[in-house]
Design a binder for these strands. Structure first.
Length: 592
RNA sequence: GGUCGCAUAGCUCAGCUGGAUAGAGCACCUGCCUUCUAAGCAGGCGGUCCUAGGUUCGAAUCCUAGUGCGAUCACCA
């Protein structure tokens, strides 16, 4: 049983014995550093059941606990706070129970129902940028956190592979491409992105021309020849025109290949993929179905809507008057398709920016109205935008921070710093390169994941991401330090410490207390879909370890038993760091 | 205008379902490498928790109103 649960029973028993009153619950918190003790019981809430002076009640309860509970070594009361000192034996026993568990903090899969987590979901007309990076890191990490908390997870994405924006790149390529193909130095997604920009330039200059000829700007925007051509191309695509479809397939494949490189660079993966071009038809089917059952209604012009006014929202269109699908149609189809493909899925998580909060509110509501059981378990993992000092990133205007470039820059920075420190002379070039990548990515991922998903991030490319303090590299560094100790200790290792009584150093006890939190932190992070909780926890743990490391000699301990214990403690801390970082998608280095 | 989100140190952020004197990092200042990796440790400086009311023994946290910033309210995605 957990410490708090045990104590809760005893506090209730104490109130029963002392006052003959039933306490519904007990409020605990970690004892603040400036007071003696390990766990604190807040007395105030008890006053509702037991009348009296909180200090006196605290004293009485404390005395009872000390007399009746072995774990409780002592206590003190400050104002209405009962600080309880727990015996070292308890912490020692706890440590013994986890020290050889390399899965510490993780729960074996217990749930039959799986969760499908969608993330990334790019358009196929431009390369991935920093905004996608946040999305991908969040989605991947939440997937891993859910797994660690005992759920089965499928990682997926929806690839937005059709529509007018794709035709824009295709058209520009047709006009100006001269048969260009991706090369070593020009990835497919970059190539296609260039033509998307090219289209926009062409479009803008045509508008200017038309305006100069006397058209209003509004009219010019609609009448620009390239736009008309792109629209025509979309119609051809929908009609299945062989030439257009062939070009579409070719260019999309270039983009997919380019994305794959980026995903691999960033270290994320997917279990399954969905393409909008494959699911929008199923969406249409269910719109027809919902029309029959009265979930939707048809307006005079033939468009189909869902009336959500009773739910406090507006009417929402689900099918255009010309019968073509909108975004909502496709999302309805995709959700249903996923359940068809993976019947064990009982819920889904959508990692999508907060600009689409309304869309998902509506989508979930519609799916409920359509009567799907699983619609009760849909979650929009909504996150804030990543903005630059100059404002929003815009692909067409070239004001984006490119994902591949960013990863490379992080790696370069790691290299610079490593070279200055010069600790890796005996590493081979390829080892060094791998390490720079590990550290650079660690810095980037931690930087993004440590902030609460719903807050927006302001990213200033001029100010580089830190490698000191509350950062990924600091945590990685601590891990590497411990590995160094373990390597040294290994030669003289002995698993013979049958210590039964122990007086912990204050730093040792603090570390064990911190370790004790980890399983709960994983569960909280899973419940709240928040990698930030893991990041913050890991930082606390690492800070505690460094303080221990710098103040207590591990290999130079006074006795053999102490040394063995400290090595084991260090090892367990490093395993916990590794596990925590793993669910953030961050790798650990053996040295740095 | 309606709706949703955010507002904490100069900057970037923690602060769990209300609890003790609001915490970290960066920056700035002091110390610490002959000793397990100084990407570190020990310490200092720095706060009207946006404002005003309310609930409570107790509010950064909950409620109401307001201010500022962002998003959204398309037969775009």
């Amino acid at each position: 049983m957990k410490l708090q649960e045990t104590l809760e029973l005893h506090v209730k028993a104490a109130i029963q014995a002392l006052f003959e009153k039933e306490l519904p619950s007990v409020e605990f918190q970690a004892t603040r550093k400036e007071f003696a003790g390990d766990v604190t019981v807040v007395v105030f809430p008890m006053l509702r059941v037991v009348k009296g002076n909180p200090v006196v009640i605290g004293e009485q309860v404390g005395q009872y606990l000390q007399d009746h509970v072995d774990l409780v070594k002592g206590f003190n009361v400050v104002k209405g706070f009962l600080n309880i000192e727990i015996s070292d034996q308890y912490y020692f026993d706890f440590f013994q129970s986890i020290k050889n568990d390399d899965q510490f903090g993780f729960v074996k899969q217990t749930d039959d129902k799986a969760i499908m987590v969608e993330y990334s979901s790019p358009n196929t007309n431009k390369p991935l940028h920093l905004g996608h990076v946040r999305n991908v890191l969040l989605g991947y990490s939440v997937s891993e956190i859910l797994k660690a908390s005992g759920r089965k997870v499928y990682k997926t994405q929806i690839i937005n592979d059709r529509g007018i924006h794709i035709c824009k790149s295709m058209l520009a390529y047709q006009k100006f491409g001269e048969g260009e193909t991706p090369t070593e130095t020009l990835k497919g997604d970059k190539l296609v992105g260039n033509y998307y920009v090219k289209f926009d330039q062409e479009y803008k200059s045509e508008i200017e021309e038309l305006v100069a000829q006397g058209q209003s700007e509004e009219a010019a925007k609609k009448n620009a020849p390239v736009l008309l051509e792109a629209q025509e191309m979309l119609l051809k695509w929908e009609a299945g025109d062989a030439e257009v479809v062939a070009l579409w397939e070719k260019m999309n494949q270039w983009v997919y290949d380019g994305f794959d490189v980026t995903y691999k660079n960033i270290g994320v993966d997917f279990d399954t993929y969905y393409y909008e071009s494959n699911t929008y038809l199923l969406g249409k089917e269910f719109v027809a179905e919902g029309l029959k059952t009265g979930v939707f209604f048809k307006k005079e012009d033939g468009s189909v809507w869902c009336d959500l006014t009773e739910d406090g929202l507006d009417e929402k269109i689900v099918l255009r008057s010309d019968g073509t699908a909108v975004y909502m149609t496709q999302d309805i189809g995709t959700a249903i398709q996923r359940i068809k493909d993976y019947p064990d899925v009982g819920g889904m998580v959508y990692t999508v920016g907060n600009e689409q909060d309304y869309h998902f509110k509506v989508l979930f509501l519609i799916l409920k109205k359509l009567g799907f059981e699983w619609a009760e378990n849909l979650f929009h993992l909504s996150y804030g935008m990543v903005d630059l000092p100059s404002g929003k990133m815009k692909s067409r205007e070239g004001t984006v921070v490119d994902a591949d470039d960013l990863i490379q820059e992080m790696s370069d920075t790691a290299e610079e710093i490593s070279k200055e420190l010069g600790k890796l002379e005996d590493y081979s070039e390829s080892e060094k390169k791998a390490l720079y990548r590990t550290i650079g990515l660690g810095a980037l991922k931690y930087y993004i994941l440590k902030v609460d998903p719903k807050k927006r991030i302001l990213f200033d490319p001029k100010e580089s991401i830190d490698f000191q303090g509350n950062t990924g590299p600091f945590i990685q560094y601590t891990y590497a330090r411990i590995q160094s100790i373990l390597r040294k200790a290994n030669s003289e290792a002995s698993e013979t410490s049958d210590v039964t009584t122990f007086n912990f150093h204050e730093k040792e006890k603090q570390l064990i207390k911190q370790l004790e939190q980890f399983p709960e932190v994983i569960q909280n992070a899973a419940d709240q879909h928040s990698p930030a909780l893991i990041a913050n926890y890991t930082y606390e743990l690492v800070k505690d370890f460094n303080s221990f490391y710098q103040n207590v000699s591990i290999l130079g301990a006074d006795t053999e038993a102490e040394k063995t214990f400290r090595v084991a403690l260090s090892k367990t801390v490093s395993q916990t760091i590794k596990n925590a970082l793993a669910v953030l998608g961050i790798e650990v280095p053996e040295r740095m």
